[in-house]
Simulated scan of single mutants.
Amino acid sequence: MLHSTPSSLRGRRILVVEDDFVVADDFRCALEQDGAEVVGPVSNVAQALALLPGAPPLDAAILDINLGGLMVYPVADVLRQHGIPFVFVSGYDHEEVPDSYADVPYCEKPLDVRRCVRELLT
């Protein structure tokens, strides 16, 4: 359970975009335990983009950078346009992230779910 942020998560809608089922399910479980409504998880860019138009507003998103060889940046761009905060998660070195996303919080795999959510909410 995310003891440090339960009141911050209650009622928040958080999109999870992650192609590793185990990691996605860990996020879903942890976020739901603390009251968040998880949108997804989805495992690719197309699914994530399909969720965005017309969906109830999101409060935040957790984005795996590499989704089966496709980068998640198109989703990040849409979220940024709508002012929705997001955090990147990846097994890649942080230096691989383009400079245009230098301001985006980054969590390295293997993930510490608590740390990643703290990054998202700060």
Score class of each variant (00 low, 15 high):
M1T: 06
M1R: 09
M1W: 04
S4H: 07
P6M: 03
S7H: 08
S7T: 11
S8K: 09
S8L: 12
L9A: 11
G11F: 08
G11H: 07
G11P: 05
R13M: 05
R13V: 05
I14Y: 00
I14Q: 03
I14E: 00
L15V: 10
L15D: 05
E18W: 09
E18A: 10
E18N: 11
D19M: 04
D19R: 03
F21L: 14
V22H: 03
V23N: 06
A24I: 02
D25A: 03
D26A: 04
F27N: 04
R28Q: 01
C29K: 09
L31Y: 00
L31P: 02
L31Q: 05
E32L: 09
E32N: 06
Q33F: 15
Q33H: 15
A36K: 10
E37F: 03
V38R: 06
V39K: 07
G40L: 07
G40Y: 03
P41N: 08
S43E: 13
S43Y: 05
V45H: 03
V45A: 06
V45C: 07
A50P: 04
L51W: 10
L51H: 09
L52F: 09
L52I: 13
L52C: 11
G54N: 14
P56E: 15
L58S: 06
D59C: 07
A60V: 07
N66A: 15
L67Q: 12
L67V: 09
G68A: 07
M71N: 09
M71Q: 13
V72K: 01
V72R: 00
V72D: 00
Y73V: 11
P74S: 15
A76Y: 04
D77A: 14
V78Q: 10
V78D: 01
L79N: 01
L79R: 03
L79M: 01
Q81A: 11
G83F: 01
I84V: 15
I84H: 06
I84F: 02
F86R: 14
F86Y: 10
F88Q: 08
F88M: 11
V89I: 15
V89T: 14
S90L: 10
G91C: 06
G91D: 10
Y92T: 09
H94L: 06
E95I: 13
E96L: 13
V97Y: 03
S100Y: 02
S100G: 07
Y101H: 15
Y101T: 15
A102D: 15
A102F: 07
A102M: 10
V104Q: 07
V104N: 08
P105C: 10
Y106N: 08
C107T: 08
C107Q: 13
P110W: 10
L111F: 02
D112H: 09
D112Y: 02
D112R: 12
V113F: 02
V113S: 01
R114F: 01
R118Q: 14
R118N: 11
E119D: 14
L120F: 06
L120R: 12
L120E: 01
L121T: 01
L121A: 05
T122H: 10
T122K: 11
